[in-house]
Structures are given as C-alpha cells and as structure tokens.
C-alpha cells in the first residue's frame, strides 16, 4: 500500500520514551536501540515509510512535541474526489 503521509522526528528532542511506537495503528514506527542522539538517548524513527497513514497518533501522544506530520497532497485530493 502506498504511504498516505509521513512524519519527521526531531531526534534531538526525542527521549526514547517509546510512547509513540505502540500508538501507531500500522506499526510503522520503531525505536532505534543501536544509536543515540547527542544526549545519549535512543530515539524513535519511521521504520516502514510506506505504511504511514498520517493519523497523527504518534504526534499527539509524543510528550516532547518531537514529531511533525505531513499528509500526501494527492492523497487528500483523491479523498475529496471520492468522498
């Protein structure tokens, strides 16, 4: 399935609390446990880009406001045409 959206995760703000990962309905996020940001903390990243549905769940639950969410423009147009 093609991605409906995408997210930008500011890894310097991310503290690796891992609240976003289980909140994602399509399991497209993951916690990077092999690397750290400059504060020495693991961070979340978009693991399966193709699965993001731009639902914003991750951004809403992220305490640190580290996640920016985008929706694919043609996707929203399609939706409007069909809806």
């Amino acid at each position: 399935m093609p991605a409906k959206g995408t997210v930008d995760i500011d890894i310097e703000r991310c503290k690796g609390c891992n609240l976003c990962v289980p909140s994602c309905p399509t399991d497209c996020l993951a916690l990077n446990t092999s690397d750290t940001n400059s504060y020495g903390l693991h961070y979340a990243y978009l693991d399966k880009e193709e699965d993001c549905i731009a639902c914003m769940n991750c951004a809403v639950i992220c305490p640190d406001a580290a996640i920016t969410v985008y929706r694919k423009e043609d996707q929203s147009k399609q939706r409007r045409t069909h809806g």
Binding site: G5, T6, D8, D10, A54, M56, A59, V60, A65, A66, I67, T68, V69, Y70, R71, K72, E73, D74, S76
Partner: peptide, 10 residues
C-alpha cells in the same frame, strides 16, 4: 516537504 501538506507541528 514537496507534495505533502503539513498537518501537525510543534
């Protein structure tokens, strides 16, 4: 991002 609409930010 080109082709994307910003829907949530800090």
């Amino acid at each position: 991002k080109k082709g994307y609409k910003l829907i949530y930010q800090r």
